[in-house]
Design a protein around this nucleic acid. Structure first.
Lengths: 131, 131
DNA sequence: ATTTATACGCACCAAAAGGAGAGTGACTGT
DNA sequence: ACAGTCACTCTCCTTTTGGTGCGTATAAAT
């Protein structure tokens, strides 16, 4: 399914917006982004290491990276105190809070339906051989 | 905390459930999963190659892989017609549709706020050197 | 004088994701 | 006879992701 010349997909909806939105979803629907969003939503203003602890299992590298992207996208604000040792506070912007609210439905869904998923997986593995 | 669907989320979250839910989110918040979910929601029953075309830019490998996982998780049903050339129909299950509905808020959010993100990025890059 | 604490940046490396392309099997249209 | 169709699977290869550990600045605490 290659398309060397590019355009063969019929666009029934506005393709530009569609593409834009997809791009955003692709970046935003990231594991760490969602987790950090939730942690900040729940705890309010937090410092770097606190976020790391509350998120759980994230490396410093990923924490920095994700936080930076979120700052760039305008989901979090970053306040640096010029003290030593360094102190940086993060919290959600209005935009970040609205995104968090949008994701809320997904969290809720997962909480409600995890048992269904589990059951489905078991059934699937029983139907098909499980090597 | 309120969600668009109007239900409530408990203030205190059971850590075990929390862990479970995070695992699910990690797998479900996947670019291709979300995209396929959307095309199936929008078009109803579809065949393999049709999904590929409508999704756009997905390789056969990823399409197969994602579809398999979605079937395993119980989001799509897969109906094989024993004919030649092969014919396989996919469509959303009830569970899949409910997930799609949950993601709906995120899609809408992206559609509404993509301009904000764009503006934020421009501002960010202006603030921070890119000399 | 040495250690501790904080919020990173950087380099290196392993693992995973994912794309490209070829192969398959049997039937159907030319 | 032979190319075309569909829904894959398999192999090879590149790109991306992400973890680990080290370095840094410097004031306060030991």
């Amino acid at each position: 399914m290659r398309s060397p010349s590019g355009r063969e997909i019929p666009d029934e909806i506005d393709p530009v917006l569609e593409e834009l939105v997809r791009g955003i979803i692709g970046q935003v629907a990231d594991k760490w982004t969602m987790l950090i969003l939730e942690v900040l939503e729940e705890h309010g203003t937090l410092r770097f290491t606190q976020i790391g602890k509350l998120t759980g299992g994230i490396s410093q590298k990923m924490l920095t990276q994700t936080l930076r992207q979120m700052e760039r996208d305008g989901f979090v604000s970053r306040k640096v105190y010029p003290v030593i040792p360094p102190k940086v506070e993060y919290n959600l912007t209005e935009l970040g809070r609205s995104l968090s609210a949008a994701f809320c439905a997904v969290w809720e869904w997962a909480a409600v339906h995890h048992a269904d998923i589990d059951a489905s997986r078991k059934a699937f593995e029983e139907r098909n051989g499980k090597a």
